[in-house]
């Protein structure tokens, strides 16, 4: 489970990047955070990964307070960034092996790595190729493979579909769905309203560090997410909307 309670972050320059943010992503659910650049999406993910310390509030991974036990909490979370960056001189399998070992998974056979790479849709011939020759979509697949091999119950995705071609994007959503089926709690920040609507169990819109709206999949069946998003982006902050938080 991924959870935030009154999570806030004010940077040293005084900017309030996140303001009393609340969130709960249960097992087998995908939560999409939407918002413009600087809305606080990446700050939220950075707080869940303990890359930055919260000013107040708490972030939990698997009920472990991230700020108090950062290393323990990272046992239970996988992270896939916008541009999955890997070690260019290593092959896809070697990168997988490296990150699996760091995650504490040892004694994984080569075939198991191949199986996971196959699962995420990477071509067989690319398994033992250096990743510096990989396209963004291929790197993204390796990034997801790293998350799968770690097999952590929580997954954080920071704008993972940005820059992917339609086919790669569609494949990516299939993989996400598969992970949801396996009971993972998934938090994904994205600009991609259409894919968010397609895959998310719940969507939150962020603006200036605050979550200004939250809708479940069921609620969105009767609403136009794009129109809602644009409305919230044009309009001001409407705190009454927060009361709808599940």
């Amino acid at each position: 489970m991924i959870e935030a309670t009154n999570l806030s972050k004010r940077y040293e320059d005084g900017v309030l990047a996140l303001d009393a943010f609340n969130l709960r992503v249960e097992s087998g659910r995908i939560y999409c955070l939407l918002g413009a650049n600087g809305a606080g999406k990446t700050t939220t993910i950075n707080l869940f990964l303990n890359f930055i310390e919260p000013t107040s509030g708490q972030a939990f991974i698997n009920r472990i307070d991230v700020a108090r036990s950062p290393i323990e909490s990272k046992k239970y979370v996988s992270y896939v960034s916008e541009n999955v960056m890997l070690y260019g001189n290593f092959t896809a399998r070697q990168n997988l092996d490296f990150f699996a070992r760091l995650a504490g998974r040892r004694d994984i056979k080569k075939d198991e790595y191949y199986m996971v790479l196959r699962e995420v849709g990477l071509q067989e011939k690319a398994f033992e190729q250096r990743v510096k020759e990989f396209s963004k979509g291929m790197r993204q697949k390796v990034g997801i493979a790293i998350a799968i091999i770690k097999d952590a119950p929580a997954i954080l995705l920071d704008e993972p579909t940005s820059g992917l071609d339609p086919k790669a994007g569609a494949e990516f959503l299939e993989t996400l769905d598969e992970l949801r089926q396996r009971g993972k709690s998934i938090l994904m920040s994205t600009h991609d309203i259409f894919r968010a609507k397609e895959i998310a169990d719940a969507v939150g819109i962020m603006k200036e560090g605050r979550k200004v709206m939250e809708r479940t999949r069921e609620e969105l069946e009767h609403e136009d997410l794009q129109a809602l998003y644009l409305d919230y982006m044009r309009g001001g902050y409407r705190p009454d909307e927060e009361k709808r938080t599940a």
Binding site: M1, E26, S27, G28, N62, I71, E72, K75, Y76, R101, L102, A103, G104, R105, R106, K150, D151, A152, P153, G183, K184, S185
Partner: peptide, 21 residues
């Protein structure tokens, strides 16, 4: 659907991501 507790338990039992020494 599995619960959080089930998922974490099975994760730990698999030795999924035992914290590396």
């Amino acid at each position: 659907m599995t619960t959080d507790a089930d998922d974490v338990r099975s994760f730990d039992q698999r030795g999924g991501a035992a914290q590396p020494k």
